[in-house]
């Protein structure tokens, strides 16, 4: 943490930190404190005056069927994206770790969705599932399913889960592969000599040794599903049909920026802040531990 050799200068370190701190204070901390403050205020119908209402805005959220519905949608969406994204990535990483020939080639071919913006991932799958030209929609029609994510809430949800998962698999894949390659070969060979087959080795050696990576990815994926998927929802479904894909970050944008409900939107912001703080703290506690126990 500390350097033995340092420079002596009274003013310079502050000057060096000034740009970073100025931006942090003006664009991060000040707006966040404003959100906190507004979350306990209520504006009158004309936006002329506001009064202190304590936790009323939060109580309103807790009673709002719409908000609870949005919470439920977010949980389903996040659970699905995290489970599929990590499951598929682990499977592919196991296979890439197994094959020696072509492993690098597969890696190159699997990583590029990382570079694709979530909104573009949404566009790609919108193309695949479009009721008139989408190839998947066409195949489904052959199988007797009339696909229409404009009208069917389940279809819309499946569509955004696929787009969000597709984009995230490459990230998870890279971390799982790095984790797998860090497992000492000698351990696996010793187990093989003792007669443990691939399935048993996976359960008793690989999975436990991979648990730090898995846990780390779990937190990162939940954060991704909660916050970074806004563009997919905004670009493809706009929260609909009805409220079927109204995830929390989309709702806070819609109520605040479009609906101009200041107090309600600020209270939603504060709830989201609590979620992101929780996830960050969990992530850093875990990393601290990983460093200590090596």
């Amino acid at each position: 943490m500390h350097k033995r050799v340092t420079f002596d200068h009274k003013l310079l370190p502050y000057l060096l930190l000034a740009p970073q701190l100025a931006i942090t204070l003006v664009f991060f901390i000040w707006p966040a404190s404003q959100a906190l403050w507004q979350s306990v205020l209520q504006e009158d119908a004309f936006g002329l005056s506001s009064r202190f209402v304590g936790l009323d805005n939060f109580a309103r959220l807790a009673r709002s069927a719409e908000y609870l519905g949005s919470l439920r949608v977010t949980l389903v969406f996040s659970a699905a994206v995290t489970a599929f994204g990590m499951g598929i990535a682990l499977l592919l990483a196991m296979m890439a770790d197994h094959v020696i020939r072509g492993a690098t080639g597969y890696k190159t071919l699997l990583i590029w969705p990382y570079a694709v913006a979530p909104a573009i991932a949404g566009l790609l799958w919108f193309f695949m599932f479009h009721p008139t030209i989408g190839i998947v929609a066409w195949l489904l029609k052959g199988g007797g399913v009339l696909w229409n994510h404009h009208l069917n809430g389940t279809h819309a949800m499946v569509l955004i889960v696929i787009a969000a998962t597709w984009k995230q698999v490459s990230y998870n894949f890279l971390f799982f592969l790095a984790g797998l390659q860090a497992i000492p070969r000698s351990l696996i060979e010793a187990a093989a000599i003792d007669g443990a087959g691939p399935g048993k080795r996976f359960r008793t050696i690989i999975l436990p040794l991979l648990s730090p990576t898995t846990f780390f990815l779990l937190v990162v994926n939940l954060t991704y599903a909660f916050f970074d998927t806004f563009p997919i929802v905004h670009a493809v479904t706009e929260g609909g049909p009805g409220q079927a894909t109204m995830i929390l970050v989309y709702k806070v944008y819609k109520d605040g920026f479009v609906g101009l409900d200041l107090g309600g939107s600020a209270a939603q912001s504060v709830v989201l802040m609590a979620i992101v703080i929780l996830l960050t703290v969990v992530q850093f506690r875990f990393i601290e531990r990983r460093v200590q126990y090596g």
Binding site: T6, F7, P13, L21, L25, I29, A35, V249, G256
Partner: peptide, 30 residues
């Protein structure tokens, strides 16, 4: 942060750390 010792050094460090917890999505309007 690494090459100087000065008062409030740790406060500066944690202030920067806070940005991790405040993505745009949680402070849109302000």
């Amino acid at each position: 942060i690494v090459y100087f010792r000065f008062p409030l050094r740790m406060l500066c460090f944690w202030t920067i750390f806070l940005t991790l917890m405040l993505p745009v999505e949680v402070r849109i309007l302000p």
